[in-house]
Design a protein around this nucleic acid. Structure first.
Length: 365
DNA sequence: TAGGCGTGGGC
DNA sequence: TGCCCAAGCCT
């Protein structure tokens, strides 16, 4: 990224005018030059960013922590070094490698987007927000982030971090999501003509490391002097979020069927919850716990099913899940049709199903 | 527009 | 422990 536009004399701390967008953004860029995080998807000093890496990381980072993303990003880039490689891969391979990261529609859209970039755009990402937003999995935030970070376009990338930082700094006390329009306008007004990508990343770094949800570190914030929420002592009141709803509990019985070191799995329907992912077969997921006999009627075959002690508990976005597990062994010549997978090769399972496997292994010991 | 859609960490 | 939250998107 160009660093040529840094002012010759940096504004002194506390001397920034909150009515001068160039001074406000300049103070943040100066902070970013000293304190930016080193992340695997960021371009090295003086190097042009790789749009494929920017896009891949932005999709993975949607609603997901940096620490969780790091190993997946490295794994994807090692397995599919270019977007052409990713487009050529079977969707199932992409989903299996995404397993554990959550929000699996992202992986389906990722693959669809890669195919579209290769088929319709010659393997090159468009650089304008409007075209980016036509691609699967790319919305307002991600379009702005790619335009700014990969192509240094003047664009606002308003994510949860930016909503928090800007709503505090400008004291926008309207509740979300109504506040989004004002936050976006305030953010866009601050984007500098040069270093728009650095500015986008600096806002996110500030939100992630200084302007945190709880206990923000205002004493070391480059915007302490211009932040209205800080002046009022109201930092932790913003942004105002709508109340959450209670999660209901759903129940099911999973069927762990073993045969000579393999376990029976199946692939879920392509869309919806865990769409396209591998799973341990189970009874339908219902609002009430099924009694054992009723649940066992859904078993994939007639076998000597034993219901294990304990319950797998897992929380999805909008419900809690209580899963009992039944287990049986059969001979190889009695296997029902299905996907038989070696028990040492269960990396493609989503977390809830890994919990099932873990419970079975624990009860063997 | 509001609800569906995962997971792991922090307190 | 239960709840909140993290670089949102889609319908």
């Amino acid at each position: 990224m160009s660093s040529t536009l840094r002012p010759k004399t940096q504004p002194r701390m506390g001397s920034i005018s909150r009515n001068r967008p160039d001074e406000v953004s300049g103070a943040l860029l100066a902070w970013y030059d000293r304190h930016q995080r080193v992340l695997p998807w960021r371009a090295r000093e003086g190097k042009a960013p790789d749009p494929y890496h920017v896009w891949l990381s932005e999709i993975m980072l949607q609603q997901t922590t940096v620490q969780a993303v790091k190993p997946y990003f490295e794994g994807f880039v090692a397995c599919w070094p270019t977007i052409e490689d990713l487009a050529k891969a079977p969707l199932e391979a992409v989903l299996d490698r995404w397993a554990g990261l959550g929000y699996y529609a992202r992986a389906r859209n990722l693959h669809a987007c890669a195919c579209k970039i290769v088929a319709d755009f010659g393997g090159r990402f468009p650089s304008d927000e409007k075209t980016l937003k036509t691609l699967p999995g790319i919305g307002d935030y991600t379009a702005g982030a790619i335009a700014a970070i990969a192509f240094d376009k003047v664009a606002a990338a308003v994510d949860g971090n930016v909503e928090r930082v800007i709503s505090r700094m400008r004291f926008i006390d309207e509740p979300l999501p109504k506040a989004k329009k004002a936050i976006r306008a305030e953010t866009l007004a601050l984007v500098p003509d040069r270093r728009a990508g650095d500015f986008a990343q600096s806002l996110m770094d500030l939100g992630a490391t200084i302007c945190t949800v709880r206990a923000p570190k205002c004493g070391i914030c480059p915007w302490e002097g211009v932040c209205i929420a800080h002046a009022k002592g109201r930092m932790e009141d913003l942004p105002i979020k709508p109340p959450k709803k209670r999660k209901p509990v759903r129940h099911a019985l999973a069927f762990w069927l073993e045969s000579e070191g393999d376990v029976l799995l199946r692939r879920r329907p392509a869309k919806g919850l865990l769409g396209g992912m591998l799973e341990v077969p189970s009874s339908p997921w219902g609002d009430e716990p099924l009694d054992d006999d009723a649940a066992l009627a859904h078993a994939p075959n007639a076998a000597d099913w034993a219901i294990l002690e304990g319950t797998v508990r897992h929380t999805f976005t909008h419900f809690h899940f209580h899963l009992k597990v039944a287990r049986a062994h059969i001979r190889a010549d009695a296997r029902p049709d299905g996907l038989w997978v070696p028990m040492h090769d269960l990396d493609g399972l989503p977390t809830v199903m890994r919990k099932v496997a873990h419970m079975v292994q624990k009860q063997k010991a």
